[in-house]
């Protein structure tokens, strides 16, 4: 009885989407960056945004994450519109509830700061002031992303590309965010390194109940990571649905072309 009740209340808490996007549009002069994008994202859900270069998927991600300000539309997170939210609050969100994993680890890491400092920065930004505890957490996170804690004082420059990317993920997830934006996180990595990273991400998504919006042009990555897909072309969402359904039974002409243009995924 008690168990059933606690499950009920947990369900209650998760009532409603984590992120609700309405009519999001961004124009570069007369050119469309992205237009009229709407979707809901629920806790624990991984949404893939696929499309060719220039399809607007990166513009969309930047607008969602607050790196670009959209011209129209709403991005409602936990009941608040992050587009109109004052910048201090948006930044606070960016170092607590939200995280952003860049394609190039150099954009997401401080290359001159040790691995431990990189992971610890978000903790210190939200007020952690115990060196020993920060170091312990950093070391724990290095382990979780399969970097030997013995390398805590090494700079990212001394790491391989795959390690740098894993370090960037640790740096982002250390404060237990609820929503993670990822821009081609496996781009530029060897296939075997990609697989390891995908496995790691899947485990973290499941264990932490993360909601993820991942931009990728790699349909194989999308299939393995994303629950749902949005296919973009010329700044607009032309098809959306369950990942395997979109890939195995694509409806739009463009999606059919996209799926048939890649080798077996």
């Amino acid at each position: 009885m008690e168990g059933a009740l606690s499950i009920l209340s947990k369900e209650k808490q998760q009532d409603g989407p984590l992120l609700r996007v309405e009519g999001l549009s961004k124009f570069y002069g007369g050119r469309i960056g992205c237009a009229d994008v709407s979707f809901d994202l629920w806790p624990g859900e991984v949404l893939g945004i696929v499309g060719e270069s220039g399809s607007g998927k990166s513009t969309l991600l930047s607008c969602l994450a607050g790196h670009l300000s959209p011209d129209r539309g709403e991005v409602i997170y936990a009941g608040r519109d992050t587009v109109t939210m004052p910048e201090p609050e948006r930044r606070m969100l960016g170092r607590t509830d939200w995280a952003f994993v860049h394609q190039n680890p150099r954009d997401g890491l401080r290359m001159g700061v040790s691995a431990g400092g990189n992971v610890g920065e978000r903790l210190m930004a939200v007020g952690a002031r115990n060196y020993g505890a920060i170091r312990e957490t950093a070391s724990d996170w290095l382990g979780r992303v399969e970097i030997s804690p013995g390398r805590i004082d090494d700079r990212p420059r001394q790491f391989s590309g795959g390690m740098q990317q894993r370090l960037q993920i640790a740096r982002n997830l250390v404060t237990g965010p609820k929503l993670v934006f990822m821009d081609e996180p496996t781009g530029g990595l060897d296939v075997s390194v990609q697989a390891r990273l995908l496995d790691l991400l899947r485990g973290l998504v499941r264990d932490m109940g993360l909601a993820v919006i991942i931009v990728t042009h790699d349909l194989a990555v999308a299939r393995l990571l994303a629950h749902r897909l949005m296919v973009m072309k010329d700044g607009r969402v032309i098809e959306a649905g369950l990942t395997d359904q979109v890939l195995d039974d694509p409806q739009a002409a463009y999606t059919q072309l996209l799926v048939s243009s890649v080798l077996q995924v």
Partner: peptide
């Protein structure tokens, strides 16, 4: 924005090194 996490990163690096 009182975004001062970086300041402590410097002190962290000092202690680590």
């Amino acid at each position: 924005l009182e975004d001062y996490g970086l300041m402590h990163v410097k002190l962290y690096e000092d202690i680590a090194r």
